[in-house]
């Protein structure tokens, strides 16, 4: 049986797709057969972040409608052969995504893969609901910013009441916090919510803090999940996150401001 992870946030633009791409690559690189599914029907972007946009032939809606088999729609990642991508449809109506269709796809993928990562669209509409409905674990991506924290809290309410696990009265979805676009410097100067502030409100199990990083943009420019940029701080942060999720005990990083006067003076990062 596969473990189903939903990457969610409620709010848009906080780093869900960046996170989905990075953690699915991280899980696969560590030897786990992994598939990442884009649930953002109508606005697909995971293919672009993963660098496989020109290899998309069939999508999840084609599979649901029986126009293609799952194997025809799955794209093997070019960097890691244990990773596959199931793209969203760009043209169809988002209502084409159905609960029964998604359930069938997840069941079939469960036979073959160890981890299924569901990249949720923003908002709380059909796509977001279906992305989280069957999940075992939820990675809640949050920015240290008021609207993002509020939306994350709303999302936590939805996870604990509207998921299949909740409806069946099973053990609830395991919820993890990924605090992204964090700037220790700005936290220190009091202009940004700290990890502690966010945790006082959400109180989740912290998987990791991802610092605000230039490499997120340069990686997406190139269509490479940022975790492959092993020298970058964001890449390392995601590597830590995957390792911690798999049970490794790694100390948290990127929380404190290390940029001293001299490092600032010489342009150190």
């Amino acid at each position: 049986m596969a473990r189903i992870i939903v990457v969610t946030s409620g709010k848009g633009g906080v780093g869900k797709t960046t996170t989905s791409a990075a953690i699915s690559m991280g899980l696969a690189k560590k030897g786990n057969k992994t598939v990442v599914i884009d649930f953002d029907v109508g606005l697909r972007n995971l293919d672009l972040i993963m660098g496989c946009e020109r290899r998309v032939v069939y999508d999840i809606i084609n599979v649901i409608n029986g126009e293609a088999t799952l194997n025809q729609a799955l794209i093997k990642d070019k960097n890691c052969n244990l990773l596959s991508i199931l793209p969203a449809s760009q043209t169809r109506n988002k209502d084409a995504l159905t609960l029964e269709g998604v359930e069938k796809i997840l069941e079939e993928l469960s036979k073959d893969f160890k981890y299924i990562v569901c990249d949720s669209p923003a908002g709380i509409e059909t796509g977001a609901h279906l992305a989280m409905y069957f999940a075992d674990d939820a990675f809640v991506v949050t920015n240290p910013e008021v609207s993002s924290v509020r939306d994350s809290d709303r999302m936590l309410g939805i996870l604990s009441s509207k998921s299949r696990r909740a409806e069946r009265g099973e053990e609830p979805i395991k919820e993890y916090l990924l605090l992204s676009r964090y700037s220790p410097e700005r936290v220190k100067s009091g202009e940004m919510l700290s990890l502690e502030d966010v945790q006082d409100i959400l109180s989740l199990h912290l998987l990791g803090v991802i610092p605000e990083s230039k490499s997120v943009l340069t990686s997406s420019n190139a269509g490479m999940p940022v975790i492959l940029d092993e020298k970058s701080d964001a890449g390392q942060a995601y590597d830590d996150i995957v390792a911690r999720y798999l049970g490794e005990n790694r100390p948290h990083r990127f929380i404190d401001d290390k940029s001293g006067f001299f490092r600032k003076l010489f342009g150190g990062k």
């Binding site: 936290v187 009091g190 940004m192 919510l193 700290s194 502030d197 409100i201």
Partner: peptide, 15 residues
């Protein structure tokens, strides 16, 4: 420091 703590205070009430 008041900017982040103001944010936290507003969030705590709202949430």
């Amino acid at each position: 420091a008041s900017s982040a703590s103001l944010a936290k205070e507003r969030l705590q009430i709202l949430v």
